[in-house]
Amino acid sequence: MPAPLLSLTWTDHVTGRQGFLVVDRLVRGVCSGGLRMRPGCTLDEVTGLARGMTMKEALHYDPSARYVPLGGAKGGIDCDPRSPEAYGVLVRYLRAMRPYVEHYWTTGEDLGLNQDLVDKAAREAGLVSTIQAVHPLLEDETEARARLADAFAVRVDGLGLDELVGGCGVAEAVLAALDRAGHAHAGARVAVQGLGTMGGATARFLARAGLTVVAVADVRGTIANPAGLDVEALLAARDAHGGVDRAALRPGDRELPGEAWLSTEAEILVPAAVSYAIDEVNQQRITARWIAEAANMPVLPEAENLLAARGVTVLPDVVVNSGTNAWWWWTLFGDIGADPDEAFAHIRRSMRALVERTLGRAAADGTTPRAAAHALVADRLPEIADRFGWYATPRKDAP
Rank of each mutant, 00 (worst) to 15 (best):
V118Y: 06
A371Y: 02
P4M: 11
V216H: 04
G210K: 12
P251Q: 01
P340C: 14
V23Q: 12
D335H: 14
L195R: 13
A398T: 14
A273F: 00
A326E: 03
R310H: 05
A236G: 09
D397C: 14
A373P: 01
F344K: 01
A398E: 10
P69Q: 00
V213S: 06
S64N: 15
T142R: 15
E255T: 14
T368Y: 08
G169D: 09
D80E: 11
A151R: 07
G360E: 00
L262G: 11
D230N: 14
M297G: 15
V22M: 13
R28H: 15
M37K: 06
G33R: 00
G200W: 02
D379G: 05
W329T: 04
I336W: 01
E124H: 04
A224V: 07
Y100F: 10
R352G: 05
L90E: 05
R380K: 11
G71Q: 00
Y61G: 01
L127W: 03
H374S: 13
R250I: 08
T15I: 13
H185S: 15
P298M: 03
E259R: 08
H346L: 13
R208T: 15
L127G: 02
L249P: 05
L8I: 14
L94V: 08
G52T: 01
R147G: 05
V156D: 07
V165H: 07
L90D: 08
V46Q: 09
H103Y: 15
G166V: 05
S322H: 00
A171Y: 04
A191I: 09
P316R: 00
T54Y: 01
W290L: 02
A272S: 09
A309W: 10
D386K: 11
V89D: 09
D253A: 07
A288M: 06
P399G: 11
L21Y: 06
L138T: 01
A303R: 00
V174P: 02
D24T: 10
T107I: 09
E342I: 08
R357Y: 04
G182I: 13
